[in-house]
Structures are given as C-alpha cells and as structure tokens.
Amino acid sequence: MALFEVKNLTKKFGGLVAVNDISFQIHEGEILGLIGPNGSGKTTTFNCINNFFPITSGDIIFKGQSIKGMKTHKICQLGIGRTFQVVKPLARLSVLDNVTAAAFCRVNSIVEARDVAHEVMEFCNLLAVKDRPAKSLPIGGRKRLEIARALATKPELLLLDETAAGLTPTEVDEAIELIKKIRENGVSILIIEHIMKVIMTMSDRIHAINFGQTIATGTPEEVANNPAVIEAYLGEDYAKG
C-alpha cells in the first residue's frame, strides 16, 4: 500500500481550475518529483495537501487515512512536514528557537525540544549560525532552516517546495546531499523543483503537470523524453524533433 496518495485532486478558484484531476502515489522511502512550468499548479497542490486551501473535489490519503479537510496543524502532527517556496522564517527568533518551536510538535519539555533542535541543526549544517536571528540568514541558510524546521516535526513524508531555487551551484550540490541524507533516514519526499539537475538526479519517479493537468508520469528518463513534457517546457517545435 502506498504511504501517501492523491486521488483525483481538483482545486478551483472561482472559474479558474488550478489543479485538475491529478492523481499520484508515493511509496515508503521514495522521492517523487513534481514538475511543471510556472503556474502549472505545483504549489497549489502542496497547499491543498496541507489544507491551506480546501480542495474542491478528490481525496488525499496518508497512511490509509483520509486527511481531506483536516486542520493544517493536525496534518503536520500526523507526519507530513513541508517547506515553503517563499521562505517563512520566524524572522525575529534565532535559528535555534525556530527549530525548537517546531520540535515541540513531538516533545513537551524544553530540554528535549532543544536536544531535537540541535540534532536537526547539525544534520542541516546550521549549528554555526544557531544564535543568529533567522532574518539575518542569506537565502541558502533560510532554505536550510525551512528544511530543518520541517524535519524537527519528525515527518514521515516531507514536501519540499523549490528548495534549490535561488542557490549558488555549490549550494545546490549541498542541497542534493542533504536531501539524499534525509531519504536515507527513511523519510519519503515529494519535491517540487525547477532545477533539472536536482530533480533528475534525486527523483525515483517524476510526475509532470501543466495547466493543472497530468501530462506525464514515470522515471526521470521517460519523463524527460516525453513529447508532452518537452512541448510544455520548450514549445511544440522541439517536441516534433
């Protein structure tokens, strides 16, 4: 049985269909890439999964249980962590406090929460900046803080929204290493990414969408050679060749 399943997900904003009848599954320990041009509905899908937006129709199932309509914080407590494309650090708090606040999701005492936070910060290479206010971090640090915070809630499934966007090439490589390490720890991952180096090397399978609809699904090679995907990204001239 799949760890996580999206069934016929549809989200309409008034007359605009942002996500149209999308279905996919994530198995335990798997990394699924979600790709598509700008405005194709990737982030909307994320916002539907953790119920920032109520979904119009369809169902979302996690560990055999429907999480449709469940409160956002409940979904996190069940084991789905997420990061934001437009990072949302708790700006005036230190990095340590950011991660500690998240760690309280699983533990109640401050000593335990700090321990979890230190563990996660070491994992994400944030210990050196732990006492700095989150707002003082450069974008690379903020992206890692997003991941660290999500990890501190001890998720079984992690939703990564453009974690590598805006990073330098070195930082992108570090991000790839970090994501690999997360998977080795048994966390399944759903990742949105535009940087092909990341998505092609990391993903076990890729799900491509455009205008809210599924256009291809399969291994990275299959999807990269799919005419519909090439057309969506490069225009129909390239798709013919």
Partner: peptide
C-alpha cells in the same frame, strides 16, 4: 515564555501560516 506555550506564542506572532504548518494549533 520559557515553555512550549511561550515558543508557540512567539511563533504565532512571527508567522501564523508557518506556525500552523509546524503542527501548532494556532
């Protein structure tokens, strides 16, 4: 302010949406 409550209070102040996504019942 030195307890879980305190951390949750300031998290809500800093960013309510982020707080929700971290499992905080805002």
């Amino acid at each position: 302010m030195k307890s879980k409550w305190g951390y949750y209070f300031v998290s809500i102040r800093e960013d309510q949406d982020a707080a929700e996504s971290l499992g905080i019942n805002t």
